[in-house]
Amino acid sequence: MSVSIRSAVKTFGKHAAVNHVSAEIADGEFFVILGASGCGKTTLLRMIAGLETLDSGEILINGRSVAGPGLHLPPEQRRVGMVFQSYALWPHMTVVDNVAFPVKAAGLGKRKAHDIAARQIEAVSLTGFEERKPSELSGGQRQRVALARCLAGNADTILMDEPLANLDPHLRSSMEEELAAFHKMAGATTLFITHDQREGMALADRIAVMENGRFLQVGAPDDIYRFPESEKVARFIGQSAIVPALYDGNGAAMIAGKTVPVETGDKTGRQARAVIRPADVTVDADGLAASIRTIVYRGGVWEARLTVDGVDEALPLVLDRKAKPGDAVPVTIRSAWLLPD
């Protein structure tokens, strides 16, 4: 494993910002920590970087303990690179000097540092911008400078603290593609924190959903979306309705008076809670009577919430045609996921 986090704890006063968090992150993995503001994800990242000390637990990077009882290696001895939300570039330095900075700090000469910086600047497609200052670059270009600096510093592990948060919405999508390409090219283990689930789902090999200092669930994006282990995870990731169901113990459940095929994990009792995603609901003239409660246009499709008799929560539905609140839309629930006991 590239990064091992073992029951890490960090408290501020009486508040446990990181509360016995454990994870094993594989070499070369793109690992996303996803959670709302204040959940502890930035504190955890800073602990891995060496910018915060642990109260208890242990962190290992490439098999070497860097933090633990009586041990705290400084950041410069951990071979990690960090991309901050603000990018943290030196405003008085040119692009090439910013990228060369960690190489010079490691004791290599100016010419060697600039040779290494030039290769990494080319790797992030910024050739021709070497002599510009950060103020002369776009947000996306500044981020690429920060990434090139990580590469130049020969970091084994790259830590990214909400690096897309300051970008315009239209730029964020293209930067997601660039980050994915950068990760593939660099091959470095990457820990990326964000509050944006769309971002996390697009980039991650695995996601850890974090709340109140703890990991609620860790898994591949598709698994977390399709098979949430708790109601909190189901509500945080994607759109859903969570409704009562009666499980027959054999792959089906009664929901709103209809038998619905279901998948389930560790489920034994008859009383259940069913997670229904938009793809689980289809328009069907012979289905349940339903009407549109709310509807929002999302560019080519309309995202609706439906009121259905016998269902105590509005069902999600994606329509390919324009509609308005109050319109009748009969539907069938064709599948669901039952939350574990």
Rank of each mutant, 00 (worst) to 15 (best):
I5W: 05
R6C: 03
S7V: 05
F12R: 06
A17T: 08
V18L: 08
V18A: 10
A23K: 06
E24G: 12
A26N: 13
A26H: 13
F31I: 14
T43K: 11
S56W: 04
S56R: 14
G57R: 07
G57N: 06
I61V: 15
I61E: 12
P69T: 14
G70H: 12
P74D: 12
P74I: 10
Q77M: 10
V83M: 10
Y87D: 07
A88V: 12
W90T: 10
V95M: 05
V95A: 06
V95I: 11
N98I: 06
N98V: 08
V99G: 06
A105D: 02
K112T: 15
I116W: 01
S125R: 15
A155Y: 02
A165E: 05
L167E: 11
P169H: 00
E177F: 03
A180H: 11
K184F: 00
Q197G: 01
G200K: 01
M201N: 02
I207Q: 03
V209R: 01
V209D: 05
V218W: 05
I224W: 01
S230T: 15
A245N: 04
L246Q: 14
V262F: 10
A272K: 07
T282W: 01
T282E: 13
R293M: 04
G310I: 10
G310M: 07
P316S: 12
L317M: 05
V318F: 01
V318G: 00
L319P: 00
K322V: 07
K324V: 11
D327F: 01
D327T: 05
A328N: 06
A328M: 06
V329R: 00
A336W: 10
